[in-house]
Design a protein around this nucleic acid. Sequence first.
DNA 1: TTGTATGCGTTATCAG
DNA 2: CTGATAACGCATACAA
Lengths: 329, 329
Amino acid sequence: MVSIKDVAKEAGVAISTVSKVLNNYPNVSEKTRKKVMDVVDQLGFVPNAMAASLSSKKTGRVALLIRLNLSTQASDEISMQYITGAVQRAKELQLDVITVFTSMIEDMTAAEVTNYFESQGIKGIIVYGMTTRDKIVKKLIDSGNFKMVVIDAPMVNRTTSSVSIDHKKAQIDIARKTIQENKCKKILYIAGEDDGYVTAERLEGIRELCAEEKLKLTVRKGHFSELRAREITMRYAKSNDCVVCASDLMAIGAMKALIDMDIFRPVCGFDGIILMGYVGKQMNTVRQDFVKISEEAVEELGRLMQGQEGRRVLMPHTLVRIRYEDIII
Amino acid sequence: MVSIKDVAKEAGVAISTVSKVLNNYPNVSEKTRKKVMDVVDQLGFVPNAMAASLSSKKTGRVALLIRLNLSTQASDEISMQYITGAVQRAKELQLDVITVFTSMIEDMTAAEVTNYFESQGIKGIIVYGMTTRDKIVKKLIDSGNFKMVVIDAPMVNRTTSSVSIDHKKAQIDIARKTIQENKCKKILYIAGEDDGYVTAERLEGIRELCAEEKLKLTVRKGHFSELRAREITMRYAKSNDCVVCASDLMAIGAMKALIDMDIFRPVCGFDGIILMGYVGKQMNTVRQDFVKISEEAVEELGRLMQGQEGRRVLMPHTLVRIRYEDIII
DNA sequence: TTGTATGCGTTATCAG
DNA sequence: CTGATAACGCATACAA
């Protein structure tokens, strides 16, 4: 393995000079800079990241903390897009990411998790799918030991930023569109999980809309489960004229139930997953760009690691209808 | 951050002694071992992985080299399961993984990729979705610089193992089952991509079966594309009585085409993705356990890193029918 | 502007 | 069995 020493020798300069060139120090003559860079290119030298971080106490390592909800198709799709966005942007920012699933740390204490991450040289963490019950993540955030970015949870402090779409507004937008298109009066809302931060925000949205528009609102908890949504629809759809769901998966469950019941009710979902194109009936849904959200999270983490303070970052959403013709490739 | 020095001081021994305890060296008295371990637990000490690998020249870092085919639902699901299996097993084996997409290295030379991985302390690589056109990966394998495990491609040498199901046999199994159940005589086979290793193996399987059973066989290339499969089905299904597809996605495309054509032909797929449950019509398919395959790949990589030679590892497959009732949660 | 020397947290070699 | 001490590859304060 070619080291900085080899480069120094070959270029006829001191190790520290090579280091300075590599790290863009100001006080290096253009001549030596070029000489060094030539040798670097010639030898194909790439600094040993381990040694560099050991010496400088700085690393570019960040962890992606991902909750594997269930093995539903939907969450796989979303998780993969999160990972894709993060890994790509990280590469561009010269960061390297390691992927960690919450299941792997859930039997550790916060101190153990901290030690583990620190031993791995991890300086930043992006949290996907945090719930109100995540005590360990909460402690990590409060400790200030790591720079953190939390997706979809309103955690902000000096070392923590949040990145998400405006869930409340998105829920209002998609529900209003669906309701207006079909002139609905009685809304069945199938909500998500109690412990999800987004559940509360979306619920607030639909409540506000229904109050404003003087619509009758029935709320049931679907726990982001397709099956539960199906059951709820079977039971309550007849006495309502619209089914608003807090996730696409639940919207699919509801729609399939309606088909089986042989009645029509407009249904809208949330997330914009491709699966929506396979159900047969088109539905309105909120499209979140999970890749972009994750890219932005990495970028925000980069800013935090450069000393900036935590803040709330809002990402745009769009209203779409996913058709089979659009997704088939 | 608590270091080995702190532990040594607290335990009243030398740094080297602590190191020996940590690395299970033989020549340490039980008494000092316990004394040291107590302090380790008490201080919550975890060795700095960077420093350790810098010193020992050993690391437990492996890279997952993943090809993002297209943003089709199917490949997201499969990729995510690969990642899940790898990350989980890696954690158990005390390895840490970094995720790399082939798109990120495709504009580099093999030498650059090697330098990059070496600079990151990566000793092993698992390759998912290698094609016959992957020159860089091929060079990586031939160079012997890394221990490698290749999924679904028959690359084996001293430092390289392959892990996969028996694609030929699986294709024969699923096709035979479908053909027998429906007493078919004329088979339309929609194959995958020319540059995929599995494509050739599966094709060999269906050819062998048709020759053996004296069935008429028509082969068309679907390029793993749902749309292409649809088009092929539209054109050739009427003159055949069975559609065998080299992937579930193509099977879905074929089935939807048949429904639109309003004719019935038995269709079978390959992979066992959950999406199959959403199409309405049940189909036979080969189920691959991608999580287990990836776990096995990590384990095999571990063996290689411990000095064992490369070999071919075959994983089991099963024949299934995916119904909506089974996947809804 | 360049070079020398020290240290980062470990492992490993070699005396004791 | 235990303890100094020299690497590992690099960054950096300081000297030249």
